[in-house]
Amino acid sequence: MQLRHLEVFHAIMLTGTITAAAKLLNISQPAATRLLLRAEDQLGYKLFDRVKGRLLPTREGQVLHAESERIISGLENLRKLSRNLGAATSGHLRIAAAPALCIDLVPLAISRFRQKHPDVSFEVETRQYADLVRVVLNHEVDLGIGFDIQSHPGLDIQKLAEAQFYGIFPKSMENQLPASVKLDWFRKHPFIGLRSDDPLGAAFGAAVKLSGVDLQPIVEVKTNQIALSLVARGAGVAIVDQYTAAAHDPRLVTARPLLPNIDFAVHIMRAKHQPASVLARKFGAVMAQAEKSVSGTLVTTNRPQRT
């Protein structure tokens, strides 16, 4: 018995007539009749008897109906699931990201995404670079978001944005600062530095070395968020990624672009052996828009004043 035969059989059981069943299935009455006759021909027995203008199920039809309801119900659930997957209206996404991106950027993207798709749930964790790559490769998360992700045969890596480093300073220093701060300026003040055992710290260290400026930190930190907290407490000055800088409390900290700029990239990655779901692709697009919002706020706030 083919699926279309089963659908016609089920529709007749619901409506009691060929005409009503055809209307329910959005097909013509002759087409519904042909499908019923073919089904009975293949089975070798009648499914309905005509009684006073209605079709009543035979004993065989009654037995078959019990099983057909389960199949039709499962088919409808499958159709709903396929529609939801295509529309990305429900589901669950596991996200791992660099700590700096989880201060504001990832929360903003999730908030915006759930406004349109409230039935989508999330699981979010912060990971340093090595762990971030590992959990993506092991498919412990659906997406990883980090800085300057290096090429890997098991990863599909896409650039989310080009970003840059910013200087952050205690609020009390605001009136002393130029519109853009040169690296050499940081040597005159207690400097809080990021460790160089991940790509972001290494990229900054290489740029500083190339500039010929020797920055000796009084405190070395693992994450830029710690640097931001230290600056807010007046412990010194620091250079951090723009997403950490954008999250500063303007009552305690002020931020300035560097001169010259030191750039880095933000990447989204997934395991190559796991195809990206519609949900993941749509979230990636929302992440890109959220990134523009966060970066735009920082650029506007710290744009050099015309003289």
Rank of each mutant, 00 (worst) to 15 (best):
D119Q: 14
M173W: 12
A87V: 13
I27W: 14
E69G: 09
M287I: 07
F204I: 08
L137S: 13
G167S: 13
H139S: 10
A88M: 03
K222L: 11
T244S: 05
D249T: 09
V133M: 04
L298G: 01
R34A: 12
I12N: 03
A161K: 06
E125R: 12
N261A: 14
L108D: 07
A245S: 05
Q158E: 15
A276I: 00
T297I: 06
H10R: 07
G16D: 03
S229N: 08
L177H: 05
P260L: 07
T19R: 09
L210A: 15
E140V: 09
L132K: 01
F9V: 01
R233N: 07
K171G: 09
G16N: 05
Q225V: 11
P118G: 05
P260C: 12
P153M: 04
V63E: 14
P275M: 00
G144E: 00
V213S: 04
L55Y: 13
H248M: 07
D142A: 00
L105P: 03
M287A: 02
Y45A: 05
A290S: 10
Q150N: 13
N175G: 14
L56D: 11
K209N: 15
A97E: 01
L137T: 13
P304I: 00
P153T: 06
R195K: 12
H248R: 10
G144S: 06
L155E: 05
G167E: 04
R4C: 11
L137E: 09
Q176D: 14
H5R: 03
A227R: 00
R59L: 14
V120I: 11
S151M: 14
G16T: 02
S293P: 11
E220D: 08
H189A: 04
E67A: 13
G236M: 02
